[in-house]
Design a binder for these strands. Structure first.
Length: 368
DNA sequence: AAAGTAATAT
DNA sequence: TATATTACTT
């Protein structure tokens, strides 16, 4: 998508100051604005591509952000003057249209990137952490106090994060090809700042307890002598202690799917294997099992009836030599191998891109 | 013990 | 309604 504008000068990379300098020498505000917009557009385009690898390339993201912000500032100066609006209806009253449009795209990355960048330990991570198990606990305890970025991210109170992933899906394919060159960058630097003292936060759902949210009382265990979990849906709702719901963050799910692929598909992978492959600290077998159950259901739903044609067991095992997790499969042909049974990778990709909610598009085979 | 599945809770 | 957890079965 090259630009049709005349960017004779734009094609060679320049620093932002250089750009601004050049722009400032242009007297024609129209041209100026055009170039500015164009630059911005291209930067944002880059950003979109890089966004898929924001964890691998945090610095790139930051640099881009910076550049974009600078240019946006410059653009904003034009808003005072009545200049043509290319495609965005700019509102002089509330600067939430023109600017917002630009901003919305970047602010998403911005926020997320900031999350990631707050603790890039890419060096430290590898050296000092031999286990390389990540601590993606969704939200173990009080979600009201999101101290760690990942909690913010994981908890996914806001869909924005997922939209982000959806957005990426379009670019990932292209990006992988382009960026594979430097995708060698270690493993994902998933933050592990969560040092929760309480590993298994349990929530008591006791009848008289009332405390349902926090780790209010794990002590209410002794009372339930009278009613056991014998009869469901009878008298008491339930007396069992329920775990805090685990949030399957996009990252978590990504790892899940990745592990799944390596094990040969959702139908042959077992929870335990998946869990071990995922190397996520704090993740339990049951959680994986549950997630797997849901995943399988979804795959079944999405993939039209097949299976009558005999299921080949040939799994070209994707043996990753040293790296336990290669987040980026070889550009282009990486995942074609894992098509074992039903789940044509379309399904998987779909699921993957959605990250968290496959629910998004459960189209019942009504329109096919 | 672990996987698969159904029921149930949030 | 969707998703996560628990209960139950194999």
């Amino acid at each position: 998508m090259e630009l049709s504008l005349d960017l004779s000068l734009d094609f060679s990379p320049k620093t932002i100051p250089q750009i601004l300098l050049q722009l400032s020498s242009i007297s024609d505000s129209f041209t100026k604005r055009s170039k500015l917009d164009d630059y911005l557009k291209r930067l944002e385009d880059e950003m979109r591509k890089i966004d898929a690898f924001k964890r691998e390339l945090p610095l790139c993201v930051l640099l881009l952000q910076d550049a974009i912000l600078r240019l946006k500032e410059e653009v904003l100066q034009f808003k005072d003057q009545p200049v043509i609006q290319d495609f965005i209806p700019s509102n002089p009253v509330s600067d939430q249209t023109d600017e917002d449009n630009l901003k919305r795209k970047t602010s998403k990355w911005l926020s997320s990137a900031q999350l990631w960048s707050t603790n890039f330990n890419f060096v430290d991570d590898e050296i000092s952490d031999p286990k390389s198990t990540i601590n993606l606990n969704g939200d173990e305890d009080d979600r009201s106090v999101p101290q760690t970025p990942i909690e913010n991210w994981n908890c996914a109170k806001r869909r924005r994060a997922f939209e982000l992933f959806k957005d990426q899906s379009n670019f990932v394919k292209r990006a992988t090809k382009e960026d594979v060159a430097f995708s060698e960058v270690p493993k994902l630097t998933l933050m592990t700042p969560i040092s929760d003292p309480f590993p298994v936060n349990l929530t008591v759902k006791n009848g008289g307890n009332g405390g349902r949210n926090g780790r209010a009382a794990v002590s209410g265990l002794s009372s339930p002598a009278g009613q056991m979990k014998g009869q469901p849906k009878l008298s008491q709702q339930q007396q069992t202690i329920r775990k805090q719901r685990r949030c399957w963050s996009p990252e978590l799910h990504r790892r899940f799917v990745d592990a799944l692929h390596r094990l040969g598909g959702s139908q042959v992978a077992t929870p335990k294997q998946i869990r071990e492959l995922m190397q996520v600290d704090g993740l339990t077998n049951d959680e994986v099992k549950s997630h797997l159950q849901k995943y399988r259901l979804h795959v079944r739903k999405l993939s039209p009836a097949e299976g009558s044609s005999g299921e080949n067991e040939l799994k070209t095992s994707v043996t990753h030599a040293g790296s336990p997790d290669g987040p980026l499969h070889g550009g282009g042909s990486g995942k074609a191998l894992s098509t074992t049974e039903g789940e044509s990778m379309e399904v998987e990709e779909d699921a993957k891109s959605d990250g968290h909610s496959w629910k998004g598009r459960i189209q019942k085979h009504g329109d096919m």
